[in-house]
Design a protein around this nucleic acid. Sequence first.
DNA 1: CGCACTCTTGACCGAGATCAACATTCGTGG
DNA 2: CCACGAATGTTGATCTCGGTCAAGAGTGCG
Lengths: 245, 245
Amino acid sequence: MDAILAQKSPLISKLESIAKLTDEERQALLLLPVQEEEIAASQDIVREGESPSRSFYIRSGLTCGYKTTLSGKRQITAIHIPGDAPDLQSLHLDTLDISIATLATSRVVFMRHDDVRALCRQHPRIADVLWRETLIDAAIYREWLTSMGQHEGVARVAHFLCEMLLRHKAVGLAQDVDGNPSINWSLTQTQLADALGLSSVHVNRSLQALREMGLLYWKGGILTALDWQGLTTAGEFDPAYLNLR
Amino acid sequence: MDAILAQKSPLISKLESIAKLTDEERQALLLLPVQEEEIAASQDIVREGESPSRSFYIRSGLTCGYKTTLSGKRQITAIHIPGDAPDLQSLHLDTLDISIATLATSRVVFMRHDDVRALCRQHPRIADVLWRETLIDAAIYREWLTSMGQHEGVARVAHFLCEMLLRHKAVGLAQDVDGNPSINWSLTQTQLADALGLSSVHVNRSLQALREMGLLYWKGGILTALDWQGLTTAGEFDPAYLNLR
DNA sequence: CGCACTCTTGACCGAGATCAACATTCGTGG
DNA sequence: CCACGAATGTTGATCTCGGTCAAGAGTGCG
């Protein structure tokens, strides 16, 4: 049991970044039966229209939720980092309205819906925390909507990167470089474009602008803010919506 | 008791449009202590940054959730029609990340958080339904994101109006005109622009395009689809994301 | 070593923003 | 019931942000 408790679960880190857990609740979460799988990059984990009987969280890697319009365009609606549970919604919605795909090789941990539901019945506070988690996802959607609707290209890119840096930091996945956050970051500019509703050409130019302003460094899978304060200003970024503790 | 049960609650209509309720659950919902208020148009009901101790649902009228960027622009992130519970999230998120305002004179029904939480503990299936409700809100955000990111103006307007028509129909607030839905609709074009991330001028021109295509009628607070099939095609609208029964 | 993917740059084009006037509707008080 | 002012809707002219197309430069992987 000690061994189990010692083992650090990214899901628990994540949940603790947004709520307090008692030892008992932590333990109940650790005892949840799971199946772990490694999935290569650019693979769908679940697809729009499916009705999965299990949810999952990310142990390592990077995934995204996306929709494809009838005319074939793609919108990335969310980015998921380790600890995130991208399709928790499928617990209460029978049909998925999005597909979820790996952006990099990822380790994914599946939990059967029945088991999660039983856990929620036994520990209503865990149900509340999971609910809270989905509500924060919704808050992120609202923020993205606002950014897409009202910010022009450069600000949109800056805002997005601020969010990624801070979310990594919140679950202990960011390094500190002179007081600025730095993370492993393997997204392509095309993928970024799909998330922001911009063309990849424009994303490229916006990134150059941010680099010229001395706000960030991004190369070889490393993203570092060179001036966190400046970056948040450029992106009109206020982290309140992330509801971090 | 019969009198109470006979009285039709918009919240129950709404919840029944997305899930089944037992008589017992319906009754428990009806017995929830509430306070009703009438609020004039263009008033904030709750404001960003507040931590309300009660949630509410709309009995009649129209409200919206919105954010204001630091540079003063406004994005409407959601429209709420009778039966919707716009700030159910505040049940589990301490600080509001949006403001909610009336768009027309509205009757609003407040429920104390403590009472709702007690109801959820006693009837876990009601908790699930309310959770489901917030998950559908999230699905709507995802769809809006996709529409804003990938659809051009005319399609975006068409998509939005399709959603409004269908959501009204789902809670029994739409008339049927030759097989097409028709609703009371008091939004201004400027408000529509704030919701879609377009300028009001462009919304105006997009609406004209849709009228010229013979797809819709909108005048004097009445919105009618003249060709539902055509309107959904123009908006690339697929209602799956609304998770209606 | 070579192919494929990503990033970068330039030229051009178009959807939609902005600005500014005018028309219409509607609510209000005289 | 009419008159008037404010909010809304409509139109035209102009400009710009960002899309598209296309070609080249890195970069990485088999």
